[in-house]
Structures are given as structure tokens and as C-alpha cells.
Design a protein around this nucleic acid. Structure first.
Lengths: 171, 171
DNA sequence: TGCCAACCGGGGCGTGCGTTCCGTATCGTC
DNA sequence: GACGATACGGAACGCACGCCCCGGTTGGCA
């Protein structure tokens, strides 16, 4: 690959990172190209489609988050809650986190699997309500993450969901 | 108003009711016109804008729901929870319920006020966590309602939110 | 029944966006 | 330093959608 090509590819990725994070997937591709200081055609030389560019930007972060699900934790419930907290923290700052679930089937599947594992463990331990499925959790989190960008208090909304997830045999 | 004009107006409203409920606000206006058996121009004779048509379709239902907030209930918490349950029931069947919050500022304000009242009463009674604001509740519900159309189990998701809303001084 | 105003249908305009095409400029090699 | 391949930029295309305009039609009153 030519040197300027590699340089431009990086400029595009950098601009895409910023704009996707700030405005989500809906940012026009021309705007990304403009911020990168290249033409739209150049973007398409490096990424076959807008969705592919978006995936290139987000998949690294999502993969890192999924990997962090394997970290040791006090107990299964904490493992799940810490993970959900990480998702909320990320989404509170970067708008593309919630879009990733919608736009890229691969990332959605990956998240689904990781969440399913954590959820299953916590449910087996009896500390999380057993009528929740992995799909429920994915879509609920997606909705909650979007709410963070519409004036919702991140800490409060997360706490509501986490509290609601706990199995309630006591009251 | 001429007789056929009134008839067409009703046909448009009927088609809009069905399509907005089935596909949400994003359904093309031409599709509504086609289903009503009229041209797009006819739709604009009766409603100045697509948003106005949407509002005409949804405001009646939302107003009825808001009015139901004044019904007597066992206690403030139940009043709030019953109301949220009604929202969830409606949104589980009609896709335009969640869009109404986004599209129409009036409807959003109305819901915000009604929810704020119910929330405030329940918080004063000490049965609902006090760090939640009306805005938090509106955006969280919007996110949750959208999740209902993406494979989430309505009863479970609602229960999670309701459980999470309760004040937790006991554990 | 005839006339006029109200109304209708649908083709068309403007816009925004993803994507493609091609003439031109640039890089790297011989 | 020249040449071929590679990459660039941005104009242009296709599409979808909200919205408007106009020639033709229809309804209801005199």
C-alpha cells in the first residue's frame, strides 16, 4: 500500500471515530470525509460501505469490552453488573455505542453471547431474576443507553435497571 | 366541508392509524395515501404536514391515557405503576406510542407533566426512589417502549423498571 | 339541470445522503 | 528523471421522501 494511502486511511478513521462518537451513525459520510480533509471517493477506496467504516471504528472497542467480561469478579452478579456499568459508561460518552448494537449484526451477536454468558451464570447463582433472557437484556440496554443521550441521568438509570434485575424473593 | 372531503379525511386518518401503529412515524406519507386510496396531495389538503397528521392520530390516545392518570388508586406508587403499565401495554401493540414522545413536543410535555405529578406523589410517600426526575422517567420509558419492538418481553421489561424504581432502603 | 367553487390525483420539485465514475495528481520504481 | 500503477477529489447519479402545483373532476346549491 502506498504511503499516502495509509496516511489517508488513518485520517479517515480518526475523523470517523470523533464524529461517530459525537453524533452517532447518522452523521453524513461527506462530513466525515470533509473533517478528514479528503473527498468522499477516498473514503470508499478504503471502506466498501459506510457500515464497514462504522464497524471498523466500533468493533475494536466492543471487542475489548467483551474481552473484559472474562475478568474475574467477586461473584456472578457483580460480574454482570460491572459489565453493564462499563457499557453505560462508554455509551454515556460515545454516542456510537448504542448504534453499534443496531448497525452491525456481528457486534450485536458478540454482545448477545457475552451478556448471555454473564446472565446465565448470575441466574444460576440465584441472584438475578430468571425470567430475563439475553435478548431482553440486549434490547433493554440498548434502549437505556439511548436514553442517556436524551437528558437521562446515567447513574440513576443504570441503578434502576440493575436493581430491577436482581431477583426479588424478599419483599 | 363537502361530503367527499370529510369521507377522504376519515379514510386518511384510518390508514394513518393503521400504518403509524404498525410501522411507527417512519412510514412514508405516500404509503399512507396509497392505503387510503387517495393521492398525496389530498393528504396535504387536510393536514398541513406529516407531523400534524401523526399528532392528529396519536393525541387522542395520549390524552386519554393522561386523563386516566387522575383515576383513584390504592396508593401513589400503584397509581404511578398502573400508569406505566398502561403505557407499556399500549406501546407493545402500537408502534407509534414511543414515537409520539419524540415527534410531538406537546405530547411529550403532557406526558412529562402527568408523569411528574405521579412520580412526585409516590416519592413523597417514600415508596419510589427520590433521585429519579420526571425527565429520567420519560426518557427511560421511551427507551423501554422501543425495546418492546425489538424482541423484548414486555411483561419482564416493565417489571424490571418498576422494581428498579422502588426505593430500596431495606436490603 | 347547470354552474361554480371545492376538491382530487399524481406528476414533479427540492433536498439529503450513500455510492460511483473519471480525469488528474502523486508515489515509487527502473 | 521518466513511466506506470496507484490513489485522489469532487462532480454526478440514483433513490427516497416530504411537500407543492395544476389540469381535470365532482359535489351541492340555485
Amino acid at each position: 500500500m502506498r504511503a499516502d494511502a495509509a496516511r489517508n486511511r488513518e485520517k479517515v478513521l480518526e475523523a470517523a471515530r470523533e464524529l461517530f462518537a459525537a453524533q452517532g451513525y447518522d452523521v453524513p459520510l461527506d462530513e466525515i470525509a470533509a473533517k478528514a480533509g479528503v473527498g468522499p471517493g477516498t473514503v470508499y477506496r478504503h471502506f466498501p460501505t459506510k457500515q464497514a467504516l462504522f464497524q471498523a471504528v466500533t468493533e475494536t472497542r466492543v471487542a475489548a469490552m467483551i474481552a473484559s467480561a472474562a475478568e474475574p469478579a467477586e461473584d456472578p452478579k457483580q460480574a454482570l453488573f460491572v459489565f453493564l456499568g462499563r457499557m453505560a459508561d462508554e455509551a454515556a460518552v460515545k454516542r456510537d455505542m448504542s448504534d453499534a448494537i443496531t448497525v452491525s449484526p456481528e457486534l450485536r451477536k458478540g454482545l448477545h453471547a457475552a451478556l448471555g454468558e454473564l446472565l446465565h451464570n448470575a441466574q444460576k447463582a440465584g441472584t438475578v431474576r430468571t425470567d430475563v433472557t439475553a435478548t431482553d437484556l440486549v434490547v433493554l440496554m440498548k434502549g437505556m443507553l439511548q436514553s442517556l443521550h436524551e437528558g437521562g441521568n446515567p447513574a440513576v438509570l443504570l441503578e434502576i435497571v440493575l436493581t430491577g434485575l436482581q431477583s426479588s424473593r424478599k419483599p
